[in-house]
Simulated assay, not measured.
Amino acid sequence: MMTKRMQKLRYRMQAVEILDILKEQPYQETDIDTECIISFDLIERDKLRQYIENPYLYTRVQNSHSLSYEQRGITIPIEMSSSFSKSSILWQKQSTRYITFLMKEEVTDDYPNDLSEHLAYIQKTHRTGAIISRFLLCAQENGKTYDFYKTFVEILPDSMK
């Protein structure tokens, strides 16, 4: 029990560190830190247990050309993907060029976030594809509650320089 609590504390400390880095250095080009995302429903106990143990596994998948449609899943190692049906795989890594930033989403009825502003900034100089947002933490800022996500935007070939 104590080991699990210590691990959760380590995840939380790492999330705070990532949040600080993304605030200081937004829009860095990087590779993505996941290879496969599978669908996730709160009634799936094994996946729910994984998410509770490590919230960073919770991931949202969107396409930069249709932000209104999003899918929610959890990150798994690529070698585990064969144990899931093809229909449950939401996304698999195909590119190594991503721009990362911190997405902030207010925890209210309509969950407003700043994704479209970040995307507009990136699209001034790049052609974009998939958007992968990995949950970091929930925190209060200026009296409001926000969910913070480490977000990766795929940079497609033939981008303007």
Rank of each mutant, 00 (worst) to 15 (best):
D31A: 15
Q62H: 09
G143P: 11
H118N: 09
S64L: 07
I78C: 09
Q71V: 07
Y69I: 13
F84V: 06
H65V: 09
K124H: 06
G129M: 12
T30F: 13
E35R: 10
R97P: 02
L67P: 00
E70C: 13
Q123S: 10
T128H: 06
G143H: 08
E141V: 15
F101T: 05
E44D: 10
Y51H: 11
T59Q: 09
M80P: 00
S88C: 04
G73C: 03
Q123T: 07
S81I: 00
D109V: 12
H126R: 15
K8L: 11
A139I: 11
G73V: 02
L137C: 11
Q50L: 14
E105A: 13
S81L: 04
Y58Q: 05
N54G: 04
P55N: 13
G143T: 13
E70I: 08
R60M: 09
K23D: 02
D114G: 03
D158G: 14
L156H: 02
M160K: 14
Y69C: 07
L156Q: 12
T96E: 12
L119S: 02
N54S: 07
P112A: 04
T108N: 07
M2T: 14
S159F: 04
S39Q: 09
T145K: 07
T108K: 09
S39L: 11
K161W: 10
